[in-house]
Design a protein around this nucleic acid. Structure first.
Lengths: 190, 190
DNA sequence: GACAGTTGCCAACACTCGTTGGCAAACACT
DNA sequence: AGTGTTTGCCAACGAGTGTTGGCAACTGTC
């Protein structure tokens, strides 16, 4: 349908806009991140943003494209699933501010919340399903993992609770890894 | 300092504004909740909001006043601390939308984030300190508890992940109670 | 009944926002 | 060289924001 992706001269501008948008959305949330500010960061005119992305919603949709890049969990020893997951998420959060942008925006923007639901329903639940075949419990396990992962991100990157900001990745792995492990493979009330 | 709180005829109006503000802040977040919309809900003129609360920030500060009302944890058997806490939080979330308002606003409003830090640093950490005297670990335990509690609220009330919305309170107690228990009394890597 | 204080509404200000249309320069291609 | 397309900027529109000042109606007190 779309053109065969012939490189355009404006690709650099498009990328600059996207980079600035991710920064602003991550720092300020959806409504406080203005098109004008994003354009200023990218050193172009606000109208260019509209031409290339149609609207603010369109820009956000493009900027919030995200892949959790979950590893193949069937290759992980079952007893180390929790540790592997928390390590993966920590690395993914710190290296890419897209998830922080999505997290901040999801609080106030329905579209962002919908996207967040999609990511955790599709990608995370799918990964859990590779080793937990019981369809009824898969969703719950994925939801519980999401609650702890997003709570970690929320307290560490958004609210910036001092104890969570100061904790080293290893601290977090040793405390939260077992939690995820139980959510993934345990039974309640044990 | 302030007058001896003689009842004013406008107290009902003040209360109506506050109630409408909490609803709007909880539903829409800080920036999307407009003074005009809040005033319309309270069936008064927007200028009244300014007269009684000074500014939008002042209104939010008044609307986000919140007490976790944590019980005396020294009266709880040590082995049931986690369960007691998750039960208390679930009841507190569901019965009062102030915390949802604060949670939503904290994503984008620095003042709200500061308030959230204060609540969890002062009230929660203080409660943990009543049975964990080791000052160095108290903050960490409180932070971990906050991460799971806020993650639960975020996924259940804000993003509305289906598995977390559908879970009954008892489901959540049986899964998350043990997590809090370990954060409160356990050691890492067990 | 006169009068100060309170309660409420109306109209407007100054500003910012997303968004649009037009125009000039740079480019690509023949 | 000439033509159509792409890239970029400028100026502006219309809507919505928090906020302000003034004015009418009501309340309570002497």
């Amino acid at each position: 349908m779309t053109a065969p992706a012939r490189p355009r001269r404006s690709d650099a501008t498009r990328a600059a806009i996207l980079r600035a948008a991710r920064e602003r959305f991550a720092a300020d949330g959806y409504e406080r991140a203005t098109i004008r500010a994003i354009a200023a960061d990218a050193r172009i005119d606000p109208s260019m943003v509209m031409r290339y992305y149609g609207s603010k919603e369109g820009l956000f949709a493009a900027a919030a494209e995200f892949d959790l890049r979950l590893p193949d969990l069937t290759a992980v020893p079952p007893a180390q699933l929790g540790e592997a997951l928390i390590r993966h998420f920590l690395a993914r959060w710190e290296g890419d501010e897209t998830l922080v942008a999505l997290l901040r925006a999801a609080s106030t923007n329905p579209g962002a919340a919908e996207r967040m639901r999609g990511i955790f329903a599709d990608q995370l639940a799918a990964a859990v399903a590779t080793f937990d075949s019981e369809a009824r419990t898969t969703g719950r396990r994925a939801g519980l993992v999401a609650s702890q992962i997003l709570g970690l991100a929320f307290t560490r990157y958004i609210v910036r609770l001092p104890p969570m900001v100061d904790a080293t990745p290893e601290d977090l792995v040793s405390w939260i890894g077992p939690t995820l492990q139980r959510y993934l493979t345990g039974r309640p009330e044990n």
